[in-house]
Amino acid sequence: MTTANGDPLPSCPCGSGSSLDECCGRYHAGLPAPSAEGLMRSRYSAYVLGLVDYLLATTLAAQQTGLDRAAISAWSLQSTWLGLEVESSEVFGGQPEHAFVTFTARWHDDGGEHAHRERSAFVQHQGHWFFIDPTVALQVGRNDPCPCASGQKFKKCCAGFV
């Protein structure tokens, strides 16, 4: 397997030390990530590999149409990905389950070397974890049904995680 840039890939890009097939490749192939951290790691690996469809599909469904597919693809392909460090993963009980994952992703592009630290929010729905993208506004009122499809009002579900 190679990266989107054609470089050889000795192990999973997420930094687990396992092979891609034993790690994030399973989720890219359709197996649901077992945790928010697993999904976040597989999304980083998807950026390394240029798997834009996976990045779109693992974002909260209500936000997918607001994503810029061309920009995601360009960033993925025009960057040399340098590594991922997961600082923490906080899982909150309840139905649906929510989580925060704090991480730093590093990459190099025409503008130099970069590091991005983020505390990302995730929600689980029907056995699948989804990324709640802070760059895509949710067009929902506090008393509207939650866009994660939990059946709850937004204020009782995902409002505290966006």
Rank of each mutant, 00 (worst) to 15 (best):
G111N: 14
R26K: 15
H108M: 12
P96F: 08
G17K: 05
L56Y: 08
P145E: 10
V48W: 12
Y44C: 10
I72S: 07
D144G: 01
G151Q: 04
F103I: 03
K156I: 00
R142F: 00
Q95G: 04
F103S: 15
D144M: 03
P34L: 06
A149C: 03
G15H: 08
A62S: 09
N5D: 10
C14I: 01
D109M: 07
A99P: 12
T102G: 05
F131I: 09
R69E: 14
F100P: 03
P13F: 09
R26Y: 09
R117G: 04
A121C: 12
H128M: 10
K153V: 05
L82T: 10
E90K: 11
F100R: 15
A74G: 01
G141R: 00
W81V: 01
G127K: 11
T59D: 09
Q63V: 04
D7H: 13
A62M: 04
A4H: 08
C148H: 07
L31N: 09
H116F: 05
T58W: 08
V52S: 05
E37C: 09
R142A: 11
H98A: 14
D68S: 10
P8K: 01
Q139E: 12
E97R: 14
L31H: 11
C12V: 03
D133V: 03
P147W: 07
F154T: 03
V101G: 13
W75E: 13
L9K: 02
A70G: 03
V136T: 11
F92P: 00
S88V: 01
S79K: 09
S11V: 01
G50S: 08
P8L: 06
S18L: 14
E85S: 13
L84F: 14
L138I: 11
Q78S: 15
G66E: 08
T102A: 13
H116D: 15
S16F: 04
Q126L: 11
L49H: 05
P147H: 06
Q139H: 04
T2S: 10
C24N: 13
A115N: 07
P10F: 00
S19K: 03
S18C: 00
G17H: 06
F161Q: 03
T135P: 00
R69I: 02
S79W: 14
A29S: 14
H125C: 07
S73H: 11
C23V: 02
E87R: 12
A61G: 00
Q126S: 13
I72Y: 12
S45W: 13
A149P: 01
P34W: 06
S76M: 13
Q126F: 03
A62F: 01
H108F: 09
T2R: 14
V48C: 13
F161N: 08
H98G: 07
V91K: 06
E87L: 13
A121R: 07
G38Y: 06
T2A: 10
C24T: 02
E85C: 05
A149F: 00
H114N: 07
L67W: 11
N5P: 00
A74H: 13
H125R: 15
G151W: 09
A159P: 00
H108V: 02
G93N: 14
